[in-house]
């Protein structure tokens, strides 16, 4: 256990920019934007998205706010907060992508692999520490950022609503559930498990290929093209497409459109065949990473 904690701490020390600083900076920027909007300093208006205090001059909006019940407020607020946190999640997704591709390639390239392997840590433990990092630990690190953004957004909105006599200060707070924090973290963990085959594939490419990006893309491109020519099907392509998307795509159809998921939905994912196919594939890939890492001993001309 101590070994695993040490290995994960080492990864966080090495990748603090991607996993700690970057999400926090994005959170700070988003918070500033939110505060600026509520204080009337800026507006965000795109064809799909409108975030501005002008919306509260709309009579219908004001009436809805005055009459909405707690469930309605909660639903709207959850959707808004999910969208607001997306840039943080995208930042972390990018950091995870870079980590997966580079983590086993870099240690070979800079030859630190020989030092790491000179210590009594098995290859399996090292590989599992990296898998645990991206699936369990990084979501835990991201969560406080999301909570911070939520709280700053709700506080700014409450001040704006109260000072403009729209609704009382406590309007949103009564509808904000602290248990949503659990909903978010479990949803992030579910997402990690859903995308695990892709993450494991990228790590695998880093463990065996001299050029990890090519090693990750070329075999997949070849297999996808061969499948479409020989079998006239696109199962592999759809498999990858699904894993790039939200884990909710694994749910039965009636749940697919649900944007804000409940913890109970995760059980539904566990009951799908797709999920377990992904887990089996991930296990094979993890075995492959361990195999290649244990054979990467190219350190002498003799």
């Amino acid at each position: 256990m101590n070994t695993l904690v040490t290995l994960i701490r080492r990864e966080l020390q090495e990748h603090k920019v991607g996993f700690i600083y970057a999400p926090f900076i994005v959170t700070c920027v988003l918070s500033l934007v939110v505060i600026s909007v509520y204080f009337g300093l800026t507006n965000i208006q795109t064809p799909e998205f409108n975030f501005s205090t002008k919306i509260y001059e709309n009579e219908q909006a004001l009436e809805w706010m005055a009459t909405a019940d707690i469930e309605q407020i909660t639903a709207v607020m959850r959707s808004g907060l999910v969208v607001l946190a997306l840039p943080i999640l995208l930042t972390v997704a990018f950091a995870i992508l870079a980590f997966n591709l580079s983590t086993f390639a870099d240690e070979r390239k800079d030859r630190t692999l020989i030092f790491w392997r000179s210590l009594p840590v098995s290859d399996l433990t090292t590989v599992m520490s990296k898998i645990l990092l991206v699936t369990l630990i990084v979501p835990l690190i991201v969560l406080p950022n999301i909570i911070l953004l939520h709280l700053i957004s709700l506080l700014s909105a409450s001040i704006f609503f109260a000072t403009n006599d729209i609704v009382p200060f406590g309007w949103v707070w009564s509808a904000y559930s602290l248990t949503d924090w659990f909903r978010i973290i479990f949803s992030l963990w579910a997402q990690s498990l859903w995308s695990l085959p892709l993450m494991a594939w990228l790590m695998f490419a880093g463990a065996f290929a001299k050029r990890p990006i090519m090693g990750a893309l070329v075999p997949i491109a070849v297999v996808v093209v061969l499948e479409s020519i020989v079998l006239k099907t696109n199962h592999i392509f759809h498999f990858i497409e699904d894993r790039l998307g939200f884990w909710t795509s694994s749910l039965p159809e009636q749940h697919e459109e649900v944007r804000v998921v409940d913890v109970s939905d995760i059980y539904l994912m566990f009951s799908t065949q797709d999920f377990w196919i992904g887990m089996a594939l991930s296990t094979l890939l993890i075995g492959g990473i361990v195999y290649f890492r244990s054979r990467n001993n190219d350190y002498s001309s003799e």
Binding site: D110, T112, I114, F115, V121
Partner: peptide, 25 residues
């Protein structure tokens, strides 16, 4: 072991590397 090609991780501080070895050995 110490080999001529064993490279200590450049991004680490001396203290971090000591704590790492302490944690795994």
């Amino acid at each position: 072991s110490i080999t001529d090609v064993a490279v200590l991780p450049k991004w680490m501080t001396v203290e971090q590397v000591l704590k790492y070895v302490d944690g795994v050995h």
